[in-house]
Write a protein that binds this DNA or RNA. Structure first.
Lengths: 333, 333
DNA sequence: CTGAAAGCGCTTACAG
DNA sequence: CTGAAAGCGCTTACAG
């Protein structure tokens, strides 16, 4: 009598139980060739009876498809990231694909993870690591389709933040503002990368070119906004572009604490139209980042590389739209 | 001449290249038995040279370990969920485990996903679906370790929200409040489940027992808070327990819009000490949910079932602590 | 310290 | 419509 360590029921057990071949059992399950209806029913009920479950490892060994997509992100602290993640996950689920999530702030670990993913663990890779270039990511992926967010070469997704920023600045100017401050977020905080934004500001035809109106922040967080709030409010600025909503929230917080009403002394423009921007008081004028469009385009570029029937989306340029709410007002209101 | 569709380099290729057995190559890689140092070096350099990568499918087929943990959540809209997710992911990464994320709001799909996970795709499952009971989840997992958040039987993690709530209510009473309103969140919004909280409130020895002080909400969101704000502010309440921070934010918003300063007419207590609670003005008095402790306990219960050396954590009861900030004040201040 | 060979549990040409 | 058998690329007793 054998000791049975694991009660694995295999396809062979099912076949033997019915006195048929496992070829037939396999085909009954996959539907890849016609099976006598009655036999098929018997197979299905035997599977039920014996509690057979097809083995993942054996299946992927043959099909070379795991139904898994690797997702590489720095962390989940940024609401933009989790919003993207949710949309991906939902969209991939429509294709019966699951997401393998890896978080790392270490680029070398990021490289290792791509290598690990591409040993056959996943069918495709989505790279969100800002420190890992598309070319290198692709090379590490060794033939496994790999798409880098906002920087992939196929059907490029261009986020033209600059034009959005210019629109915001023009709007402030139309309201009469001439002293428009700018918050430069050094470490790229969700929306505005490294800082091309600052260049756009500096090259704007009406740029005040006053160094005391430029505020630099390492992290685009509420705490960051609080840090510079006093300086911003005591500067000569009548309006400010904050780079993102969290920084704007920091300014709000400081203002409320000091009995300053927005936009009385300062008009404020946020940067990514996060959910919080509507909850703030007054509701924040900000640039809208269409997260869903961004996410769907990216995931479909990947899907096109994985699923033969899927077609590559059209290349697209997205200009963040200015959402005017109540944190901005004509000067001297 | 053969057409090579995939340039798969296998362990056999490496062995043949050196005229040795793949047994040795395998052991050189796994370290499971001593290899001549010089030979080992040659193997490693040949692997490098040929670009060999061990095949995931073949490995897990033998070892029956995938290094993957299945994670089942409803969605990623709740900051509590994403905070948990991030801590899990970080902790599992320490054990070289990756997370397979599945989001579904459909319980039947949730059941299917557990079944799919347990076909050998993952080494363990974390269930966060409120609609899927631990017993059923475990049964579906068929021997694959499966831990259900806040409801697992091994080393139970008890979140005693009731005591936290009582502490909050007592604190308000000490401030002199007698008319304390209560927001009951029907659909369980992140923190306060189905609504045992309402029972706690109703059974509190100083409960005002005034139906006009109980407000019911389907969703514990900012919008929900806004919905009931007018009613809350025009009730006889001098203080309110909102169930969660988002609802409190809704009340804030309405108050600001109507020129009402908090806590002048109404003291407000939130419910989960989310990041936003500190950003609000005035900073919100709330109950703290120690997300990291909750997450680590849960993940270690799972790890104990997967890794023989890991020990089960001690059972623990967590009482959310009252964090007193500036949204509460003595009555008649 | 090393190797030959069985085996993991499926899928899929090939043959009928 | 069905089956016998090869093979996916490793790991791991077993033997030396």
């Amino acid at each position: 009598m054998k000791t049975i360590s694991q009660n694995h029921v295999t396809m062979t057990d099912v076949a033997r139980h019915l006195g048929i071949s496992k070829t037939t059992v396999s085909h009954a399950l996959s539907g890849k060739r016609p099976i006598n209806a009655k036999l098929r029913a018997e197979i299905l009920s035997t599977i039920e009876e014996l509690g057979f479950r097809p083995n993942f490892a054996a299946r992927i060994m043959n099909t070379r498809r795991t139904g898994l997509i690797g997702l590489l992100v720095e962390n989940l602290k940024n609401p933009h990231t989790t919003a993207l993640l949710e949309i991906f996950s939902k969209e991939l689920e429509r294709y019966s694909l699951q997401t393998v999530l890896a978080t790392t702030e270490n680029m070398d670990r990021g490289r290792e993870l791509i290598a690990k993913f591409s040993e056959g663990m996943v069918d495709g890779i989505l790279n969100f690591l800002p420190g890992l270039e598309p070319d290198e990511a692709k090379q590490l992926a060794r033939g496994v389709p790999c798409v880098t967010y906002l920087r992939h070469a196929e059907a490029p997704l261009v986020l033209d933040y600059s034009t959005g920023l210019l629109n915001a600045l023009s709007y402030l100017r139309e309201l009469g503002h001439r002293k428009i401050a700018f918050v430069s977020i050094g470490k790229r905080a969700g929306s505005c990368p490294v800082d091309p934004c600052l260049d756009v500001y500096l090259q704007w035809e009406f740029c005040p070119h006053d160094p005391s109106l430029i505020f630099t922040l390492h992290e685009g967080t509420v705490a960051g906004g609080l840090e510079i709030a006093e300086a911003v409010f005591s500067s000569s600025a009548t309006a400010v572009f904050t780079g993102n909503d969290a920084v704007a929230a920091g300014l709000y917080h400081w203002a409320h604490n000091h009995g300053i009403r927005i936009p009385d002394r300062l008009s404020i423009v946020g940067g990514d139209n996060t959910e919080m921007s509507q909850q703030m008081f007054p509701p924040l004028t900000t640039l809208d980042l269409p997260v869903e469009r961004l996410a769907l385009h990216t995931v479909h570029v990947l899907l096109a590389a994985i699923i033969p029937e899927e077609t590559l989306p059209e290349p697209v340029t997205i200009i963040p739209e200015l959402v005017i709410r109540n944190s901005t007002a004509p000067i001297g209101r």
